[in-house]
Design a protein around this nucleic acid. Sequence first.
DNA 1: CCCGACAATTGACACAAATCAACGTTAGTT
DNA 2: AACTAACGTTGATTTGTGTCAATTGTCGGG
Lengths: 253, 253
Amino acid sequence: MTAHPEPSSTPLPYIACTHDFRVDCSHCRIRSLCLPVALDGDDIEKLDEIVQRGTPLQKGQYLYREGDRFQSIYVVRSGTLKAFRTTDDGREQVTGFYFPGEILGMDGISKNAYASTARALETVAVCEIPFSSLEKLSAVIPSLQRHFFQLMSHEIIEDQMLITLLSKNSAEQRVAALILSISSRQARLKLSATKFRLPMSRIDIGNYLGLTVETVSRVFSRMQKIAVLEVDNKEIRILDIDGLRRLADIGGR
Amino acid sequence: MTAHPEPSSTPLPYIACTHDFRVDCSHCRIRSLCLPVALDGDDIEKLDEIVQRGTPLQKGQYLYREGDRFQSIYVVRSGTLKAFRTTDDGREQVTGFYFPGEILGMDGISKNAYASTARALETVAVCEIPFSSLEKLSAVIPSLQRHFFQLMSHEIIEDQMLITLLSKNSAEQRVAALILSISSRQARLKLSATKFRLPMSRIDIGNYLGLTVETVSRVFSRMQKIAVLEVDNKEIRILDIDGLRRLADIGGR
DNA sequence: CCCGACAATTGACACAAATCAACGTTAGTT
DNA sequence: AACTAACGTTGATTTGTGTCAATTGTCGGG
């Protein structure tokens, strides 16, 4: 029921495959997007031994909470999560959305406690990788160590891009950038890049982009009016991707 | 960076020690703030062997530029740098300021090329740590590997805090938070936490905080008027640190 | 020491996005 | 199927910060 609508022409969707949640790394559908990319046969098996596959999370459930003792990092197998921090005065700040193949929990390494909370936006399956095992394995498999360093570095770059977005761009540009980001992540998953369902609410979008819900809503309306987007609640269809790209990076403040 | 307790009681300033730029790690004044914290005697020597200490950078010189081939990470020994990215349309986004004991360059790991440019705000001395050597050493010294993972994780957390600041806080709160951050970094260096010279221009501050120069200037004026700060160009004196803290985290938007 | 260039401050005004308010829509529950 | 609470949209109004402009202050070089 949370299944992404899928054009009949596209191959199998990567979502809600609750039946395959015990599949090992070498047969996983998203192995090409996950840690194994850095590894060959033997090493994948070693990784496979430390990976834990739990039961799926239901919408609204927590994968971990801010302050929880850090023990593992997680790879999204199917579904979507949001990560957020709670400020001193109790407000939330969404720091990211996580799609299949993406890794979360790395902010917990620094203080041995998660610095953010991760919550399922829909039914979610994850692979859990105990960090201590990953550390040991990294010391013996150089390419794994390298790859993990790269993943963390990549997270830093992503955060810096968000900083730039928040600091320099208008409401319209921020929303456009998010839609484009989701679109390219859909493409990475071999799903339609132009027609998809947003897994998060307007509140989450606004929170993530540093805007109010009203502003987000108005931007969607405007984009629909100029025929760049077709918006039906959470269903999005990109009508003019170049127009959207233009909205995303030109005409700043 | 979290404050690491300083065992030695030497009150010497940690700045502009151009004469000691060949000192080895175990005798370095900022060793307690740097990678060696994770190491003991023998291992410090191993680290010391891979560390390179070049000649100081003059104000305005570049440590590395966006797109340069990534080879090393750097630890600031003395002085201050700023890191920034250039957006597609040519504007700068300052992503961080780096004080002695702080590490920069980690954003280059992901793509084997720096994702940002680092420029000296004043005369700067750095230690260069070739990444390939650090990788090899990490595989043999578990505590070094762990520490380096933690450093990267810490950078992620810092970036997320900046994201929150930009997304949720007013101009006044942003400036207050930056001053408090610099203040605590001064304290970490055993320098005055209440009286210091800002190494960066108003332009850089505004750029970092997502504000215009004019707004930054106005906020400083206001804070001076309510006797929280004394501002004389780049010289700052904090008159009421609790007042400043209150400005930083209450009365949001 | 004065000059020029750049950095910082201040004021007047404009505007994008927040806030306040009302209403329509969706989805989950009984 | 009806109910309800949360979510989403739209309009009117306010406000914080950006923009433009003018002035003063600071620093390095000849």
